[in-house]
Computed example of a mutant assay.
Amino acid sequence: METIYFSGGCLWGVQEFMKYLPGVERTQVGRVNGATHSTKTAYDGYGECVKMEFNPAIVSLETLIDYLFEIIDPYSINKQGNDVGEKYRTGIYSKETNHLLKAKCHIERLENALNDKNKTRKKVVVEVLPLTNYIPSDNEHQDRLTLFPDDYCHIPLRLLHKYKKKT
């Protein structure tokens, strides 16, 4: 198992989308790269994120990044849907240098492909940084959209459960 942290706007929607992907074994919402070690403090520079444990024999990091790009606007700075502010930035974080190198290379390829397709020269603004701090969110935020499916989500419903297995 490997661990990666994705930020893509409000953590509720990102978790609800990611937890159904093949190879993703566990998800947990939290805060990444803030200054403190408590969820009880005011905003301290953190980004909302989803911690994912995944099986690389089933899903590659590059494929997970492709999935992330399905649900974010990679050109938007500190805004996804109606969620605005630095805590809603997009990013990929890891303790593993290899993850960060793979992510940077893959994002560069995605940026080139998107620009060629759209005939533009826009810069993808998804940050790729070492994980310096992670704090799990309180229980009320874990699996929020599974428990309260009518809560707000910036991810369109047609995408939100695209990979959910039919039971």
Rank of each mutant, 00 (worst) to 15 (best):
V128M: 11
E86Y: 02
P56T: 05
E48H: 14
I155T: 03
K117S: 05
K79A: 06
Y75A: 05
R121P: 09
S137H: 12
Y46W: 15
Y75L: 11
D150E: 07
M18A: 13
C153D: 02
V128W: 03
F54K: 13
R31Q: 07
F69T: 00
D83C: 11
L157K: 06
E96A: 12
I58W: 06
I4L: 14
I135A: 03
K79T: 04
T97P: 02
I92E: 13
F17A: 12
K102F: 14
C105S: 09
T97L: 15
E70M: 01
N82L: 09
K162S: 09
G9Y: 01
A42Y: 14
I155M: 00
G13M: 00
V124G: 09
T146M: 14
A113H: 05
V32M: 01
E108C: 07
V84R: 10
Y20N: 14
K51M: 15
A103C: 05
K165S: 00
Q80D: 00
Q28E: 06
R158L: 09
I135H: 14
E62T: 13
V84K: 02
L64W: 04
Q142G: 07
L157A: 11
L129A: 15
N33T: 05
D143T: 01
K164Q: 14
H99M: 06
V24F: 14
E96P: 03
A103S: 12
Y67E: 11
V126P: 08
Y5A: 09
K166N: 12
H37M: 03
V32E: 06
N82T: 13
L100W: 14
S60M: 13
L159R: 04
K162P: 09
G45C: 04
K104N: 01
A35P: 02
V84E: 04
R31H: 11
D66Q: 02
N133T: 06
D150P: 07
L101Q: 15
F17K: 03
I4W: 14
K166I: 01
R31E: 14
Y163G: 05
T36Q: 01
W12I: 02
A113I: 07
E108W: 03
S7W: 01
L21S: 08
V128Y: 07
